[in-house]
Simulated assay, not measured.
Amino acid sequence: MKGPLFYSKILLFGEYGIIQDSKGLSIPYNFYKGALKSDENPTEEAMKSNQSLVKFVAYLKQLQTEQPGLVTFNIDVLQNDVNGGMYFDSSIPQGYGVGSSGALVAAIYDKYASNKITVLENLTREKLLQLKAIFSNMESFFHGKSSGLDPLNSYLSLPILINSKDNIEAAGIPSQSATGKGAVFLLDSGIVGETAPMVNIFMENLKDQGFRKMLKSQFIKYTDSCVENFLQGDMKSLFKNTKELSKVVLSNFKPMIPEQFHQIWQNGIETNDYYLKLCGSGGGGYILGFTQDFEKAKKSLKDYKLEMVYQF
């Protein structure tokens, strides 16, 4: 048995900001993917995934009881499949900020939700918000608190524009240019990040008035501008605003940036060869980079593994 594929995602802009109602833009990233599977002779990895699914099923049972009307699953079928060794076969690295749990949540909803909203329907804002609410509750099992955006992106496989908490829409993004020098890329920090501790630090910081002021007057301002610039294909303004965003993050989100990357982050701002920003909650995993000249960025970052995400 092998289910349909669900892809990883990249939140280009909006990490942390969307908790405070900034804009956000999330795109599918087809390089990594996962599917539900069962095998006669499961590997150790598969058995570990299956054990995690056992706990997830118990959580979904509870969710159905506590929030009737939110979502109904064919729990007996799901329970049988999990008892039979079903697991999530995924190439999506965990703790890297590219949505490993989101793809799993999307796969379970797709296969076992009894009255699911499908991708083929006319996706009104109400339906998108309903899906986001369902996914937020499902994914909270993995992170403690989830916006539901990662599974939504994975499930729909469409770019999603977040205008505010209650206003999201499927978005068209400028098409890539195979000959373009500019790029959005991933830099592998080589460290696994954990979402929950990072979000906790952020929530603690929110208690500080100065931090809240910085978020509004700088972080959210530049995030919103970057989203608008990217969607309009205004690359000149995009790089100007990404540079400012990169500076704000380096000054105010230091715990989310692994220490050995503080100088590399600063170098990008000083040389203009590239600008770095958080990919997901930070603390490790991938770091997202923007450059007007990918070859130049590769030379500057020659000691690191870079993956092209989007070319323009």
Rank of each mutant, 00 (worst) to 15 (best):
Q218V: 00
H262I: 13
Q263N: 09
N229L: 01
I264F: 06
M203A: 08
I220D: 05
A297Q: 00
Y304A: 07
V249E: 12
V249M: 14
G285C: 09
V192P: 03
N229A: 14
V199Y: 03
N252L: 03
K221W: 04
A196E: 15
S300I: 02
Q260T: 11
Y286L: 03
Q292Y: 01
D293V: 08
F294A: 08
N205M: 10
P255E: 03
E270P: 01
S237E: 14
Y286V: 04
A297P: 04
Y275H: 14
I257G: 09
G233Y: 13
K299H: 15
L245F: 14
P258E: 08
F202M: 10
P258L: 06
K243C: 04
A196I: 08
F202W: 06
D303G: 05
E270H: 07
D208Y: 10
K302Q: 14
P197F: 08
I269S: 11
S251W: 02
L278F: 07
L245T: 02
G285T: 10
F230E: 11
G283A: 07
D208T: 09
T195A: 01
M198L: 14
F202R: 10
E270N: 12
I264W: 05
T271P: 00
C226R: 12
G193L: 06
E194Q: 15
A297S: 02
E307L: 11
E259S: 13
F294G: 05
L301G: 00
K298E: 15
K207D: 07
K277L: 07
E228Q: 13
G280C: 10
R212K: 12
G193F: 03
I191A: 06
